[in-house]
Design a protein around this nucleic acid. Structure first.
Length: 431
RNA sequence: GUGGCUAUGGUGUAGCGGUAACACAGCAGGCUGUGGCCCUGUUAUCUCGGGUUCGACUCCCGAUAGUCACCCCA
């Protein structure tokens, strides 16, 4: 016995996971709903590069956000370009909108995409460094009806995949002007009470005051009861916009929760913001996706002023949720026929037969690597295939095939020229 | 970036200061031309490195990894 030498094992990078075949069942299920409903609602698919100019993100998401400051994967190319792995999808889509002159298309332009996003943070439940989003964007209209349509679309996706207990949280954070006024009022309110805030919130006070509203610390959330509310600071336009969005949602009976404390992490949001939330374990709300209006973003990235709204869904989180809620998906073992071969000559014949079956549109399976009839039948049984075709020495010489019905155990010898026809006939009757 | 918890075959788990057990999965065989059941064999330097000890998978320290929570976010 030679000593076993254990080589260093490679493991996947931190926060990056293999999506195993059993998970892909759920992924395919989600993606097919995304694709189907997206197209139904008039969205066209677009895929943008995973790497973009770093500045695209710093300018859109916000220079001072955590995402840009500490969570981006940055790299410099051999040519000296500074690129980043995309931490979200909207910036790239808007870049494409501007680059490709989509402003000249019929407005609004409706686009959707799917793909991996990257953020360098500590992994935990429902959060990976590489994660996958499906996103939708409606670019080129400020009509509140599209805010509602966006929510209608994601709501219908969740309905289609049969995920229950979905709640839409919605709020308006106003435009740059009214949000500015609100922020000032909020900071004023908390500043005088800063000593009662948790350390994190004291930091938020200067950096990201809106987040104080979201704090889970009891003393902080208690204080927000008397804090100024954003709705009272919305300008007439923002207020009316928000009101119409809610009216449209009422019109189509989409249940939502007005959450005055909902704020979102990216700087570019204006007016409507929303989150798709599910009640997780220990009563915590888990966000499966979120979005909002970003009326200034196109201009910020160098295009003509163009209002827009978008949403992104977290595929891993949705897949986890589907599993947890016991939405059962079964692997459809598609093979209807299994080929068993014995001996070299039969192996060659069965290789040809396999090809003929597939060309005839009959899903077939094999275990060519195995030699004994027993082990092959065992595999056939495991695959739950109804019809097994056996070619041994004798049959390969006679030009015949044994057709075995696995349920009844009945066998027939059939001329190999007629076997395709015979199998087709049985598949028709069998099911 | 901060903190808690965990680390035993491919997977899921036992275990005790005295040379690793069970279930499932895999492979091979019992039956050299017939599956499901059954049986047999096989699959682990108990994450790594140090310390305590006559002796460590077990106790202690460190590293690494995983995991959960905070921050932040999908």
């Amino acid at each position: 016995m030679s000593p076993k030498i254990k080589l260093e094992n490679f493991i996947a990078p931190k926060g990056m996971q293999d999506v195993m075949p059993s998970d892909c069942l759920y992924w395919d299920y989600i993606f097919s709903a995304v694709d189907k409903l997206g197209k139904t609602y008039g969205f066209n698919r677009i895929e943008t590069p995973i790497l973009e100019d770093s500045r695209l993100f710093s300018r859109s998401i916000g220079e001072n956000t955590d995402i840009v400051e500490k969570e981006m994967y940055n790299l410099t190319t051999k040519g000296g370009d500074k690129l980043s792995l995309r931490p979200e999808g909207t910036a790239g889509v808007i870049r494409a909108y501007i680059n490709s002159g989509m402003a000249n298309w019929s407005q609004p332009v409706k686009l959707f995409y799917t793909g991996p996003m990257f953020r360098y943070d500590r992994p935990q439940a429902g959060r990976q460094r590489q994660f996958t989003q499906a996103g939708f964007e409606i670019i080129g209209s400020m009509d509140p009806i599209f805010d509602a349509q966006m929510i209608q679309l994601v709501y219908s996706i969740f309905k289609k995949i049969k995920l229950k207990n979905i709640v839409i949280n919605i709020n308006s954070i106003g435009d740059a002007k009214c949000r500015g006024k609100y922020k000032t009022a909020l900071v004023d309110y908390y500043k005088s009470r800063a000593n009662k805030l948790c350390p994190d919130c004291r930091r938020r006070l200067s950096k990201n005051p809106l987040r104080i509203l979201d704090c889970k610390e009891e003393k902080c959330s208690a204080m927000r009861e008397f804090a100024p509310q954003i709705v009272d600071y919305l300008c007439v336009e923002c207020h009316n916009h928000f009101k119409s969005v809610l009216e449209y949602l009422d019109e189509i009976n989409i249940p939502y929760i007005l959450n005055p404390y909902l704020v979102r992490g990216l700087d570019y949001y204006t007016k409507t913001v929303f989150e798709i939330v599910v009640e997780g374990g220990n009563k915590r709300q888990l966000s499966l996706g979120g979005g909002g209006r970003y009326d200034d973003l196109v201009e910020i990235l160098g295009g003509a002023p163009t209002p827009a709204i978008g949403v992104a869904l977290g595929i891993e989180r949705i897949a986890d949720q589907l599993k947890a809620s016991h939405v059962a998906l079964v692997k459809n073992s598609s093979a209807k026929v299994f080929i068993v071969q014995l001996g070299d000559k039969a192996k060659k014949k069965s290789f040809k037969l396999f090809n003929d079956l597939l060309e005839a549109g009959i899903p077939a399976a094999e275990s060519f690597g195995r030699g004994s009839i027993k082990s092959q039948l065992r595999v056939a049984n495991r695959l739950q295939v109804r019809i097994v075709l056996i070619i041994g020495q004798k049959e390969s010489l006679d030009g015949t095939v044994i057709l075995r019905d696995m349920e009844s155990g009945m066998q027939e010898i059939i001329d190999s020229l007629k076997i395709i026809k015979e199998v087709k006939k049985r598949m028709k009757n069998g099911n």
